[in-house]
Design a protein around this nucleic acid. Sequence first.
DNA 1: TTGATTGCAAAGTTTTTGCACGTCG
DNA 2: CGACGTGCAAAAACTTTGCAATCAA
Lengths: 153, 153
Amino acid sequence: MLSTEQIIEVMAGQGLRITDQRKTLAKLFGENSDFLSAKEVYEYMGKKYSGLSFDTVYRNLRVMEELDVLEQIVFEDGVKFKVNCSEGHHHHHMICLQCQKTYPITFCPMNLTDTPEQFQVVKHKFEVFGYCQDCQQVTEDDGLVMPTLMNGE
Amino acid sequence: MLSTEQIIEVMAGQGLRITDQRKTLAKLFGENSDFLSAKEVYEYMGKKYSGLSFDTVYRNLRVMEELDVLEQIVFEDGVKFKVNCSEGHHHHHMICLQCQKTYPITFCPMNLTDTPEQFQVVKHKFEVFGYCQDCQQVTEDDGLVMPTLMNGE
DNA sequence: TTGATTGCAAAGTTTTTGCACGTCG
DNA sequence: CGACGTGCAAAAACTTTGCAATCAA
């Protein structure tokens, strides 16, 4: 995973100017491997920069995504960003429906999936949703949570 | 895959009123297994209902998704809907990025996925994207292909 | 210095909500 | 009839764009 310094290095290497705001962004993503929405990033940055504008956050997130510094995934509840897992190490994620934290799954089903050769595979998504250890108490209150795997009907 | 009649049946069985518009929606999805965006649905419906409003389409799509009549997938370019394959047996899909048609994958990676017991799994998604046989040539020459909407009828 | 970066304002998209009228059952 | 569905308008949420002032290199 890219470190804060590596992120800055990549950006500077591509001719981008390293503003204070971009340093903070690099730090945020360099020290945090969760997926963050644009809004969450904005709120975090807003603590430090009083006059921060939403469009600058968007612009920087897009730039960083174009430089492959950030990885962007479309979840059900919107687009989120995370520092790119460099070294081409492919994996998937478990995502907590409560706190949105992600946990890696090293297993990739694609190797085992039997795709007809008529179908030219481009990409795939494998995402497991549920509740992480910290968030499981919270869901008990609701009462109507399925405790185990949803494995078929 | 649910037929037009089955869709109507489910909706009526849940106490929903079967309006003319909902009949048409049931027909659209019952006879079409491609993924359609809300906009595409709106445009299709608009041919028949001159004063149609966008919000009604959204409301009905949401209702149908909540009844599990429709399946909703978030693509990079937005949310799309398709009739649900709730024929009792759990499976996943390959989805053509060009024509949006879907092909079943019987294999479910969830059985093989090693989830730590600290993580309480609620649901999962496994989707393979690519190009189906019919669309592989088309991708070279800047295909002017649209998802096949039924011609007004 | 100078061109990239930012904040601001405004507009473009997509989706949701409140309300009054219309209609299914 | 009465409750649900619809159209209309407006708002909300999210994202992008143009422009002038600012700032990194």
